Simulated assay, not measured.
Amino acid sequence: MNGDTLNHRSSLHTNTINLKRHTLVKSSLDDARSNASMRLRRSWIDELRWQVGEASFMKWTVEDVLAVLKYHPVPCLLAVSLLFFMGVEYTLLMIPPSSPPFDIGFVATVHLHRILAGCPALNTVLAGLNTVFVGMQTVYIIWTWVVEGRPRATIAALLMFTFRGILGYSTQLPLPQPSGVNFELIM
């Protein structure tokens, strides 16, 4: 063997190795680009999965739920009362519109009632704002308990709405006159 043949084989071997490296690097870059675009597409899904996975309720076990029933009976009783009084309040037959209402709230707010009766647009705007406010409260209450694991707002809401249901059942008011706009969540 002469030195030229050895040199030629060595350069062929080096070129083959370089070509393989180039192919590997190119395919690695293509894979990285493909993976990066795939990660960008999946990032919001992964973020949502992570947030749901980190939510407090995802870590509850059957024992946790039973412990709530055993060690915290008052909030459980309030939750059952809330459901009961919601059913009673929303199925309660109202007194006819011709009957005069008697409610301490009406007596205390006669002046405000006159203002709102004189300006129906203001009444509609305030009713809409009240509905938005109640919706925001509901989202906050559910979020703090289910996602953050802080039950204090939920317990307070259960207390408030339970007693509101009791008072709603105790105070029968006449049906309102039909109007063009009706907001269902008005408190």
Rank of each mutant, 00 (worst) to 15 (best):
T14R: 04
R39M: 03
S34C: 01
D31G: 05
R42Y: 10
V25S: 00
S28D: 06
L40M: 04
D46N: 06
H22Y: 11
L24R: 10
D30L: 11
M38T: 12
S34L: 00
S10L: 09
I45N: 02
S27G: 12
K20V: 11
W44P: 00
S11P: 02
R21L: 00
T23L: 11
R33Y: 10
L40D: 03
T23V: 12
D31E: 13
H22R: 06
L12K: 04
R42C: 06
D46V: 04
N18T: 13
R39L: 04
L29V: 10
L24S: 09
M38R: 11
S28C: 10
S28T: 09
R39P: 02
N15V: 07
V25Q: 04
S10D: 05
S11T: 15
D31T: 09
T14V: 12
I17F: 11
S43P: 03
D31A: 13
T16V: 07
S27H: 14
R33C: 06
R33S: 08
L12I: 02
W44F: 01
N18Y: 12
A36C: 04
T16A: 15
D31Y: 06
N18W: 15
K26E: 04
D30I: 15
L29H: 03
R41A: 10
R42L: 11
T14W: 05
W44S: 02
T23G: 09
N35Y: 07
T14S: 13
L24M: 10
N15G: 12
R41Q: 10
V25P: 01
R21G: 01
S37R: 06
H13Q: 15
M38Q: 12
K20L: 12
L19P: 04
T23H: 12
I17W: 03
H13S: 13
R39T: 04
S37C: 03
S34A: 04
T16E: 14
L12P: 00
L24G: 07
S11Y: 13
R39N: 04
T16Y: 08
I17G: 05
D30G: 07
L12A: 01
S37D: 05
H13K: 15
L24K: 06
S10M: 09
R33P: 00
S43K: 10
S28V: 02
I45W: 05
M38S: 12
L29P: 00
S10W: 12
M38N: 11
R33W: 09
K20T: 10
N18M: 15
D30P: 00
S11E: 15
H13I: 12
V25D: 01
L19R: 10
L19I: 13
M38F: 15
S37F: 04
S11A: 14
S28A: 12
S34T: 00
A36S: 07
T16Q: 13
N18G: 14
R21I: 01
K20A: 10
